[in-house]
């Protein structure tokens, strides 16, 4: 059992929780994830680790209430327990001193990007963060990310904050202004990662994306999370979750993420959380 010790509402649909999980907190590195199962009848879902506090043995998760499990998770209170919480899984981000790094996050994908930004900054990179959201109220972790970034840009679909448009528009603008990047990290909706990767390909900027396909065990046992990378089948849980953004077959990933969309709807409806 893993106790929830803190809960915060970051936006209408995005919540933050700190979970007591000392082993994971001690060993987690940027880019890794956990698998959780709320109760005996629950599904196992992956969530990227947004932060970890070694001293107090706490792991921060940030999630969008989008399916049955995340909606149910959102109803839990401080002091409640999660039945299973296992990690840190996946390969950590390859944190090095690259030089000038663009860190691009969209929606709830900003959460897993945060520890990566922090780690990149700590080893001395120049970090340019570009965050995107549908509107101002859905933008998360702006302040935290600002603390670890040399430059911060924001884009919203409706223009309620920062540039009106997409994160790719901001990146294009920065490139047009003559800014250069040695590497880019992109985490967010699949379509956003696809668009940004297409852009960085044009300018030959090495690009890392973090994928979040459907998983069951999260330890390389089932292949539910397989993705096609450079024509080769990889398991996001053990070979990833980060991959070369220029090699991922995003269309296949989008299709695979829709595998159980009807079942998810039915499940939510029955639980009265739709």
């Amino acid at each position: 059992m893993y106790r929830i010790v803190e809960k915060k509402t970051l936006s209408e649909t995005v919540k933050l929780m700190k979970i007591e999980a000392p082993y994971i907190a001690r060993n987690a590195k940027a880019g890794q994830f956990v698998m959780l199962r709320i109760d005996e009848k629950g599904e196992r879902i992956p969530l990227t680790i947004a932060d970890s506090d070694r001293e107090n043995g706490l792991v921060t998760i940030i999630f969008m209430e989008i399916g049955k499990t995340t909606k149910e998770l959102g109803t839990l209170k401080v002091g409640d327990n999660i039945l299973n919480f296992v990690g840190p899984l996946g390969k950590p981000s390859e944190i090095e001193r690259y030089g000038r790094v663009a860190c691009i996050g969209g929606g709830v994908g900003i959460a897993p990007l945060y520890p990566i930004i922090k780690a990149l900054k700590q080893v001395g990179n120049h970090v340019t963060s570009i965050l995107g959201a549908r509107n101002k109220s859905l933008l998360i972790l702006e302040e935290e990310i600002n603390n670890w970034s040399d430059e911060l840009y924001i884009a919203t679909d409706d223009g309620s904050k920062g540039l009106k448009g997409f994160v790719s528009d901001v990146l294009q603008k920065l490139i047009d202004e003559g800014k250069t990047f040695d590497i880019a990290w992109v985490v967010g909706p699949v379509i956003m990662m696809k668009v940004v990767a297409n852009l960085t390909r044009k300018y030959n900027i090495k690009t890392v994306v973090s994928l979040n396909p459907i998983m069951v065990d999260g330890t390389g046992m089932c292949g539910s999370c397989r993705v096609s990378v450079g024509g080769k089948t990889m398991f996001a849980c053990v070979d990833g979750p980060e991959f070369d953004g220029h090699l991922v077959d995003y269309d296949n990933l989008m299709q695979r993420n829709n595998r159980f969309i009807e079942e998810e709807r039915e499940s939510c409806k029955l639980a009265g959380v739709l």
Partner: peptide, 17 residues
């Protein structure tokens, strides 16, 4: 694994489809 460990044969009583 879906069917046996996660009991997908009892979906929607269990959450895994």
């Amino acid at each position: 694994t879906r069917v046996n460990l996660m009991k997908a044969y009892l979906f929607t009583e269990y959450d895994t489809p």
